[in-house]
């Protein structure tokens, strides 16, 4: 039926239902998408990751119990699939962050607000990455250069800032959807706010919406 596509459509209702019963898997998926689509590192979802870890561990134990108790192999395999999917999401989330950390380690480390977005293990990881990278650059190249060119972060001693540090491109555009039924965003250069309903996708300047990610909008 035509009206199935309109307001209050089947798809719309399903969306609404999933919204009402949001599982951690769904939240993790959103976190993964946001992290993947954002140019810079986002706030680590500590609580969510903790909960997901606990659920995964619990499920691992449950599946093991099922297997030992001789439960129907079909059911066990379905539980295993659900477990695999949750693990895949969690791993992807952590991995996307690691990739960003490796890419922008110097940049993240020197900026307090960015550094505070990391989890403790991530901080240790970045610190070690930096040490290893510096040591590597030092041994292979820098130590063989003239005195003025031995910094891993600056071209030469006359550089006024760290000009050899890769930085994420923040003047970029991202695709986003409203995470609620409706959202109105104020844009810098236009007098009209950007209004989005659930079915709208907008390509927006990252800087404009970065503080709204995970609150009013989610990246897709």
């Amino acid at each position: 039926m035509a009206e199935d596509f309109g307001e209050g459509s089947t798809a719309g209702m399903d969306e609404y239902e999933t919204l009402m019963a949001t599982t951690d898997v769904e939240l993790l998926k959103t976190a993964l998408r946001n992290e993947k689509a954002a140019p810079e590192i986002l706030q680590f979802q500590a609580q969510l990751v903790k909960r997901a870890r606990e659920q995964i561990q619990l499920m691992e134990e449950t599946v093991e119990e099922f297997e030992q108790s001789g439960m129907d192999p079909l059911t066990v395999s379905l539980y295993q699939m659900d477990l695999d999917r949750a693990q895949f999401l969690l791993r992807s989330y952590l991995r996307v962050r690691l990739q960003k950390l490796e890419k922008y380690m110097f940049y993240i480390w020197k900026n307090d607000s960015l550094r505070n977005r990391l989890s403790e293990p991530e901080k240790i990881f970045v610190k070690r990455c930096i040490d290893d990278m510096e040591k590597h650059l030092e041994e292979t190249v820098l130590s063989k250069l003239p005195d003025n060119y031995q910094s891993a972060r600056r071209q030469s001693i006359i550089s006024e800032e760290d000009d050899m540090v890769p930085e994420p491109q923040l003047d970029t555009f991202v695709a986003c959807k409203s995470s609620n039924r409706f959202v109105s965003l104020t844009l810098v250069d236009s007098e009209r706010p950007l209004e989005m309903e659930r079915h709208d996708v907008s390509f927006v300047l990252y800087k404009v919406i970065k503080d709204k990610i995970g609150v009013d909008v989610d990246l897709v």
């Binding site: 965003l185 950007l194 989005m196 996708v201 927006v204």
Partner: peptide
Amino acid sequence: ATSAVKISHLSAMEVNVVRPFVV
């Protein structure tokens, strides 16, 4: 030139396909 482009009812796969060009 603008800081936002809204496209209603664009699907997930379509977003991904047009993203590189749009961005």
